[in-house]
Design a protein around this nucleic acid. Structure first.
Lengths: 141, 141
DNA sequence: GCTTGACCTCAAGTTGACTTGAACCGCTAG
DNA sequence: CTAGCGGTTCAAGTCAACTTGAGGTCAAGC
């Protein structure tokens, strides 16, 4: 009755959408761990699904598996507040970028202007994106 | 006096932060084009900087170079409105994800709870992320 | 008792996005 | 006139993140 809570790899695959090969790979990389084995088969705690959600979200945010693993491994309590805050700001900037891009697409869907070269709204969006880039490059100099 | 407007690859590199190798690669992939050559050297219209900003933003949004190229190539006017709107919605969802993640990090920076396992705010964020994932996987079935 | 299906390992292969290296060209400053 | 800088090509190399394939285990159903 403890056993029943555990998921085999197929169940995790169905629940998370990630193929078994990826789950094994993540385990090898130390991003997730199985609760144990039944025979040779992996068994997972249901919480692994949250972790996988975090991994997928983190990947979409442009973090490498390495970075994500580090965030998991270091005790949150120990990671200096500033580092987390810095990551959060990084994300904030990325959200700004994506918002511009989304608005750009949405506008392109609606704009009646014959050419986007002439549409002031589109031009403004382009300038915003470019400015964001410039700032980013500044930092990596 | 038309000539002077054009940038050589070094200028584009300085302005965009992208190395020459990347600029040549993008050209090879058909994502950007040079305005012409002076001798064997590429010359670029300043507008290439906007295009590069869009490419970089698109990459950060998780689009492949292939996809980005397609968006550029197909005449915007021809791309059915729904496709653009659909891409925009995709971005919208991703922005939601990143916002959750950002809030998660920001919260982790401030939370006094001894363990995140016990912090209700963190738990709530995790559930949100997981739900988003589940929806996403739904679509890729 | 034998097949089938879901799992396992481990090494090798794939893909996308670049980068690196070798060999070369052409202007300009000393 | 030659050294060096900033370009050029083209083929090969690299890296992260997976995937694939061959060959094996085990439990369940016919």
């Amino acid at each position: 009755m403890e056993e029943n809570q555990l998921l085999d790899i197929g169940a995790v695959t169905r629940a998370s959408g990630l193929p078994p090969s990826t789950l094994r790979y993540y385990e090898e990389r130390g991003l997730i761990s199985s609760a144990g084995r039944r025979g040779q088969r992996r068994l997972y705690h249901p919480e692994v699904l949250q972790r996988l959600a975090m991994i997928t979200t983190g990947r979409a945010a442009g973090f490498s598996l390495e970075e994500i693993g580090t965030m998991f491994r270091e005790d949150y309590a120990k990671v200096p507040r500033e580092v987390l805050e810095q990551k959060a700001e990084e994300l904030d900037r990325q959200i700004q970028h994506l918002t511009s891009l989304r608005d750009g697409l949405r506008h392109a869907a609606e704009c009646q202007s014959p050419s986007h070269q002439q549409c002031p709204t589109f031009q403004r969006l382009l300038r915003v994106m470019q400015k964001q880039q410039a700032r980013r490059y500044q930092r990596s100099r």
